[in-house]
Design a protein around this nucleic acid. Structure first.
Lengths: 103, 103
DNA sequence: TGGTTATTTGGCAAAATAGCCAAACTGTGG
DNA sequence: CCACAGTTTGGCTATTTTGCCAAATAACCA
């Protein structure tokens, strides 16, 4: 496999990987309805704020979210709503597997 | 967060996570064009066959692939082609981030 | 200036992942 | 039955990820 192709694969995999954690998936779902600050997300997630902050930075690094400081708070926003389509497909994968197991 | 919701999130995250590796992404791309056996995928990937086999089992466990034995060979098939849409979206995320950095 | 709130970062330990080798397993054909 | 090709699994180490605490940073207000 040549190097540029490899890099492209890695970049794409990083986006998927960023979404490959329950907490991060949850936060993306919540942010689909509008921006939220770290404190609000921390409340929703129910983990340490430092943990939430780290998850957010993973999503930001992957290009999924962007942040904006307003006063004391830092608000996070969903950048590419197309990632929401992942959820439906992932559910489809799960449901199909379930149906296959039942059959 | 209640327990059933948590489990649903985890299941979806597992699908994303399964796709969150360059080698696995590559294999899914190749399998989009038709089934391949482990030996063929090993040749394409260029890693140890045991490594390829483990990656395939991750994708199978996530419900992305299914396998079928025919004689000596085990063929893997893509189950939900909708995962291919992930690729376009992931590229979109990457390109948008790139554009933002340039601006 | 100092105090307070919101957030990130450093540091650490536990857990998960990745990759290789070697051994085991599965079906084929003599 | 044996030998062989294709595949998976056990076992190991190296690396990465996760999550908490504590300390640092950033912006507000008095």
């Amino acid at each position: 496999m040549d190097f540029p192709k490899m890099q492209k694969l890695k970049a794409r995999a990083d986006v998927m990987k960023a979404l490959g954690h329950p907490t991060r998936l949850f936060m993306v779902e919540e942010l689909a309805q509008g921006e939220l600050c770290v404190a609000e997300l921390t409340e929703l997630v129910g983990a340490d704020m430092s943990t939430v902050s780290r998850h957010l930075s993973v999503l930001r690094a992957a290009g999924v979210l962007e942040d904006e400081r307003r006063g004391n708070c830092i608000y996070y926003r969903l950048l590419c709503p197309c990632v929401l389509d992942f959820f439906a497909c992932a559910q489809n994968v799960i449901d199909s597997a379930q149906a296959r197991r039942s059959a």
